[in-house]
Design a protein around this nucleic acid. Structure first.
Lengths: 352, 352
DNA sequence: TTGTAGGCGTTATCAT
DNA sequence: ATGATAACGCCTACAA
């Protein structure tokens, strides 16, 4: 069979031989280096030869000499999160879309592997990537990131505390303000016994931001935060279910819930249902993220729209600029996070 | 400050110099080549020097000479799918977990970028990856895969038609049988007007497999498939919602639905609700995949458990074996797909 | 307009 | 037991 072999043991030397030119010429043509004065005819011949042989340059060789890999990594705290929530998948979609459009491949890396910190820094040190996007940094990893940023390595941080990462480029939403908005919404509807379930253990920046926002809103209404009405889950619906059961078991009256993410909200709602409570009649619920299913659940969920896909796109676009050597003046971008009102909070209730 | 610089312009030559040995020795020590008789003392010195300098071998250089990249790619049909369904994220979690545990990085690649076929084959040709896992191959890409497999490139296919990929290693479930099971469940409950919504356009193997299984089950009960009761969606809840509306608009009586995936099932259920129909009282619904939220929805969804995480793990484990040069005799692994019965189908109904 | 030569950082084959 | 030396495939001055 005479079909071009795409098996890629093809080297530029072979292309050169077939085209009857030197490797240099091949290189010039294929990377179309301008001003090098390659005759149109030679050009054609080289291109033809390359196509016939199914030539694709060896990435390792190229990156060895150029120092670039055209690859970036997206680092997330834990693989596990992919399974139970869809914030990360949507963000990955955005990162992937934008990176591919700009010629970059995306490595998906968990920060924690099998219980212990993965060495994502090795990716940098071994020069496997040109840049890094890091999501939801646990406090324990702040130092590593600061170090990388100080060295000038292209780095964008998502979903983190601006203070902790002052010198680092970040794409984020104002989580605290969003949490305030969500909680205020419940308070404005007349609720005074508002519970909160964090979406993760408290070592994540995003978790404490929500907690602060929740507390802020309560204070605005002259209410002091009651630890008895606060619980922490772990990303999944199941953990939300358990957290809600725990809250109910404390037998503190609760008429509303601000959940740290939508998935947890759904778990909590199921727990309320199991306990014979109706949503929104007995307990109003606000979620966080606006996952695609939020609009289609029963009841449809009132929630904060964080638009992770768009955040991912923005982070990737910024990263590519950093890789290109640009140094944008603004280091922090904060997008708005609207409250999407649906049926899960019902109508205003008369003050108790 | 005297902290080891991890910035990794450190080369093995520098380590050699600091340790007072040659680069060869450094290489032997770091890759601990056995039988090479390196004195314990030299060993220590090299290791110390490497640590002091924060030496990490350059991946490109290493892969250039070794021919291996310790990277694999997971190819999925479209980025978009990440956003709306969580089958792929869970599978990615499995692939990622297993690959990282075995020292491989994972590149996440869409097969279709911005509407046109991405050249995932270039990853192979440019030798950026040592192996490939491909999910849900559209028929149009069958030939490329056959070609790669014929060349002996390590390749595992997921969620595809076994006939179409006879010579290719695959991890899969018996989709057709699962669809039969799901549909039979509805028929056994007394339903005779069973609709089906495919999870994607019909160019995917998985979609037609479900359709065949659906048809098989109907036939077992002496019913001929009615195209008027079949619609196709596009992964998302929204598309499920639209498909259900379309079905309802046809005004063909329907008492049960087998949805191509859970996300679509939820969209469809919302459409039924919007139309004033109750689930399960008026329409029974079976989903497909058992996404984590299925158990927490109202009503909890009866569905087929496809366990994508486990499939991902299995695929990755197999791929790593293939990369290592093994040639397992069995090319196809098929895992069981149990029907998980919850509340969305209600109780047996009297025959109409 | 094209060819020659050196180097990117490793690994691996030889001598010593 | 260790150290030169030659690849790996590509890019890019520089020379012709």
């Amino acid at each position: 069979m005479n079909r071009p072999k795409t098996s890629a043991r093809v080297t530029s030397t072979q292309v050169a031989k077939l085209a009857g030119v030197s490797r240099t010429t091949v290189s010039f043509v294929l990377n179309d280096v301008p001003q090098m004065g390659i005759s149109e005819e030679t050009r054609e011949r080289v291109l033809l030869a390359a196509r016939q042989l199914g030539y694709v340059p060896n990435a390792a060789a190229r990156s060895l000499v150029s120092g670039a890999t055209r690859t970036v990594a997206l680092v997330v705290p834990h693989n596990e999160h992919l399974k139970v929530d869809n914030f990360i998948p949507r963000m990955l979609a955005g990162v992937n879309e934008t990176c591919h459009a700009r010629g970059y491949k995306v490595l998906f890396e968990p920060m924690i592997e099998a219980g212990r910190p993965g060495r994502f820094v090795d990716l940098v040190d071994s020069r496997r990537i040109d840049g890094l996007i890091v999501l939801n940094v646990p406090r324990s990893e702040d130092a590593h990131l600061a170090h990388l940023a100080a060295e000038g390595f292209p780095l964008v941080v998502l979903g983190s505390n601006l203070d902790a990462h002052a010198g680092i480029y970040s794409i984020d939403v104002d989580t605290r303000e969003a949490a305030r908005t969500a909680t205020r919404h419940l308070l404005a509807l007349g609720h005074r016994q508002v519970a909160h379930i964090g979406f993760a253990p408290n070592e994540y920046h995003g978790v404490s931001e929500r907690l602060y926002g929740y507390r802020d809103a309560l204070r605005e209404f002259g209410i002091e935060m009651d630890p008895e009405r606060v619980a922490f889950a772990n990303f999944s619906a199941q953990s939300g279910h358990e957290a809600m059961r725990a809250l109910l078991a404390r037998e503190v009256p609760i008429t509303a819930l601000f959940a740290g993410n939508d998935t947890i909200a759904f778990g909590a709602i199921a727990a309320l249902r199991d306990a014979g409570l109706r949503v929104p009649e007995d307990v109003a619920v606000v979620g966080y993220d606006d996952i695609p299913l939020a609009a289609y659940a029963a009841p449809p969920l009132t929630t904060i729209r964080t638009a992770p896909y768009e955040q991912g796109c923005e982070a990737a676009a910024l990263l590519v600029r950093l890789i290109a050597g640009e140094q944008p003046a603004e280091r922090h971008s904060t997008s708005p996070v609207p409250l999407i009102v649906r049926a899960s909070c019902g109508t205003p209730r008369v003050a108790a």
